[in-house]
């Protein structure tokens, strides 16, 4: 990886951040605050996820938020001098965690899409 690679995570962090502001506002309102205090039920979420739009939004949200969060954590870690020489292993570990989280997230959403059971 050449030393000019850092432009890309920096840029993606900005773009994902900008998209997340909009998507999370929708997600918070629809998913949590519109009928706040009512327990969230499996049936309710399943009904919402019947529409392809919401499935798409949730999947994009999952991927963006995992990238944004883990890249943010990476930025914080690498701001400490003790971790700086280990940039590569740290980035690799966080990358693997990210991939695993996205797969696990899709796995967790899967019952809603197929209808549970």
């Amino acid at each position: 990886m050449n030393r000019y690679f850092s432009t890309i995570p920096w840029l993606l962090q900005r773009i994902s951040g900008a998209v997340l502001v909009v998507l999370l506002a929708v997600h918070f309102w629809v998913g949590h605050y519109a009928d706040w205090g009512e327990p969230i039920t499996f049936a309710g979420v399943q009904m919402r996820l019947q529409s392809t739009v919401f499935i798409t939004i949730d999947l994009i949200l999952l991927m963006l938020v995992v990238f944004h969060g883990l890249n943010g954590v990476r930025n914080i870690i690498l701001d400490y001098p003790a971790f700086l020489p280990h940039n590569r292993p740290i980035s690799l570990i966080l990358f693997i965690i990210g991939i695993a989280t996205v797969i696990f997230g899709i796995y967790a959403l899967y019952p809603f899409i197929t209808g549970g059971g």
Partner: peptide, 11 residues
Amino acid sequence: VRGEDGVWRCR
């Protein structure tokens, strides 16, 4: 300055 030890480290 556009490498990893350049501008991108400005927060």
